[in-house]
Amino acid sequence: MIDKTVPDVEAAVAGIPDGATIMIGGFGRAGQPVELIDALIAQGAGDLTIVNNNAGNGDTGLAALLAKKRVRKIICSFPRQHDSWVFDGLYRAGEIELELVPQGNLAERIRAAGAGIGAFFSPTGVGTELAEGKEAREIDGRSYVLEYPIKADFALVSALQGDRWGNLVYRETARNFGPIMATAAASTIAQVDEIVELGSLDPEAVVTPGIFVDRLVAVGERAWLDDGVFVGGVDIEGRPATAAPTQTEVDQ
């Protein structure tokens, strides 16, 4: 019998060594596997290279991992945000290395790693400083630069539901990088709100087939859902709506 489920988040992140490259799903807070990140902080691995779209928000999740100085390097597209003060401080102090990648190239480099592609020519970034030093080629009259895959030792992703074979379904825009990161890591660890019986996920609706998932842990339902139904009553950070005013500042 195949059973990829593990009992808790501690077991889910067990064995992640110092120096590992870890993809972490999420776009801002949406889809960020916060419970797995908290477990990684407690587990203690350091000198990490993190791949994420952003570089942490507020003081929780990825930002907390950065604050503990466990991250040597971050590969991302949009580190600077209104609530990225943890990264900002480390970067200005020279305590974290940044590889800035245009978001579409970041996604495609991850996808390429998962798909066994050796490299690909992308039109994104041509003629900009982010393409400096890269091999260029003109194909059918258009200019491209060569982009290499980004592989990881581990991927931490968040999904709505999964089964013991590792099949995953996501929710809304919390899907974002999860499905491609799950394909691009040697070992993929998924947190889900709920682990469901094998056979109860609609095969037509499975987004990440279980072949891409190695460990699965249930972390409980999000505060804004009740038995899978959206009930609201929270702010954009998922806190009770009365806890604090919603942050409306725009990242630009």
Binding site: S77, F78, P79, R80, Q81, F87, D88, Y91, R92, L98, L100, V101, P102, Q103, G104, N105, T124, G125, T128, L130, D251
Partner: peptide, 11 residues
Amino acid sequence: GAIPAVGGAMD
């Protein structure tokens, strides 16, 4: 000294 961020702009 500015912190760069490109996001999806180039794509």
